[in-house]
Nucleic acid binder design. Structure first.
Ligand code: NAD
Ligand code: NAD
Lengths: 217, 217
DNA sequence: ATGTCTTTGTGAACGCGTGCACAAAGATTG
DNA sequence: CAATCTTTGTGCACGCGTTCACAAAGACAT
């Protein structure tokens, strides 16, 4: 029986072995002391706990550059997600297949959700349409939303939203990049607006000081 | 002078106002008691601290479905990121413009990085090519990488990597979705492999118990 | 100038996740 | 069966981020 120890797994994942064991313990206690974890059983238990043993139908709304790329992405199917439908507001796109799936018009949004029992929706529309699309998805029964539009969505309790903001990812990299370079360049207060210059010399922090807690790691 | 209070900002952002004030305090102390924060000055200070006052050239490697969508995305430019070059290994794509920018062949990767002083790279190649592309980017001088390929990249110290894994985003939603539904469906141990069934009845946790600490929020 | 009222900035307490350290479990060997 | 050895499962302590609560600052009215 193939097994792994928490030490091996932790080394591979780059985390602490005690943390890993404690995490596993939340799913139940199914390691064997002196031996480790039964790989097959472990994989199954984690998959089940994560909901990967079921198939989740998802709809993608907004089949533009990004939506089309997502529709073409094979990585979803391999993790148990099935693209149940593609939805776009552009009448010219209706019926046209993307990634082998015909695009349907927004008019049919509600019936698509209901008929397919969809509970996960992906929003890839322009920012202006996102909240409205979100509202319709939620009203139709969707309770989990993956949002690519740069908007903060408002949803009722019980609905989960995850926002993927690629600009913010770049901003985080740029922030660290700036720190790496040292703040020599930060002294260019010439570019600051009038109100900024007002007291920048007095209060701007120097290159010392730690990373502000505001920033994500 | 247009101002905002920490209370207003916190309500808009959906966070605690004290946290917001403490966070701002790390950037310096530039609120006015009894009044609030000078909006213009606040925006400038945050932008500067985040590195948004400079322009960051980025290269995108792998101009397929996703890479092309990224190249077409206008949201980057508006946040101070300039697509300096598009790079792909496919000779057929060389010279062909995507989003108005001609695609260049991988052979020129090193010179592109050097000539443009690029320190941020985006990887949108298939998983198999990601590490190799990453190594070349790093060797050429890139110190920040945004990785879309489903691979854990190994990089030397001093290089930052951020991984965007859309499947994981969906998995997190599916996990919460499963919990919302109650675990009635979790009892389908019939689908479990032999080793799993071995003792599932004995140790599988019931519907009670809290959210495992393993899971991200 | 003095008083009032609003809002900041922050010390202190709290809660939670992480890591240490070890007893208990179980496999394995003699 | 007893001894030994490996690795789990977890109590406990530490550290860090979040939140509370309030004194101090400053605007504004009188
Ligand atoms: N392209 C990227 O790489 C990228 C990166 C980050 C974020 N985003 C965000 O993702 C979203 C989509 O980006 P894109 O580049 O694909 O844009 P796009 O303009 O190419 O596509 C938008 C699509 O949404 C459709 N649409 C508009 N209103 C709709 C509605 N009410 N209901 C349904 N469909 C509607 C349009 O017909 C169009 O097909 C935008 O909010 C963008 O900011 C894109
Ligand atoms: N499409 C999506 O929505 C999506 C979502 C999540 C993750 N991803 C990941 O993003 C990556 C790209 O996805 P895609 O759908 O755009 O794939 P794709 O096949 O459409 O594009 C890949 C591109 O990379 C190029 N390429 C291959 N090897 C290269 C190399 N060594 N150097 C430079 N370029 C090279 C190919 O010529 C091709 O143009 C994949 O790793 C995929 O798993 C994609």
């Amino acid at each position: 029986m193939p097994t792994v120890s928490s030490e091996e797994l932790a080394a591979a994942a780059g985390v602490n072995s005690a943390k890993l064991r404690k995490d596993f313990s939340y799913l139940g206690s199914y390691g064997t002391r002196g031996v480790g974890y039964d790989v097959e059983y472990l994989v199954y238990q984690i998959s089940r706990e994560l909901g990967l043993t079921q198939d989740w139908p998802v709809v993608i709304v907004g089949i533009g550059n990004l939506g089309a790329a997502l529709a073409n992405y094979g990585g979803f199917a391999s993790r148990g997600f099935r693209v149940a439908a593609l939805i776009d507001a552009d009448p010219a796109m209706a019926g046209k297949p993307v990634a082998g799936i015909p695009v349907q018009h927004t008019d049919e949004l509600e019936s698509i959700i209901t008929d397919n029992g969809v509970s996960i929706g992906v929003i890839a529309t322009p920012a202006g349409a996102a909240q409205q699309v979100c509202d319709r998805l939620v009203a139709a029964g969707v309770t989990s939303i993956l949002n690519f539009a740069p908007t903060v969505l408002t949803v009722p309790d019980g609905v989960d939203v995850r926002k993927v903001d690629l600009s913010i990812e770049l901003q985080i990299l740029a922030f660290h990049e700036q720190r790496k370079a040292g703040e020599e360049a930060a002294a260019d207060t010439a570019a600051a607006p009038a109100a900024a210059r007002r007291r920048s010399a007095a209060t701007d922090q120097g290159p010392d000081g730690d990373v502000p807690a505001v920033m994500p790691a």
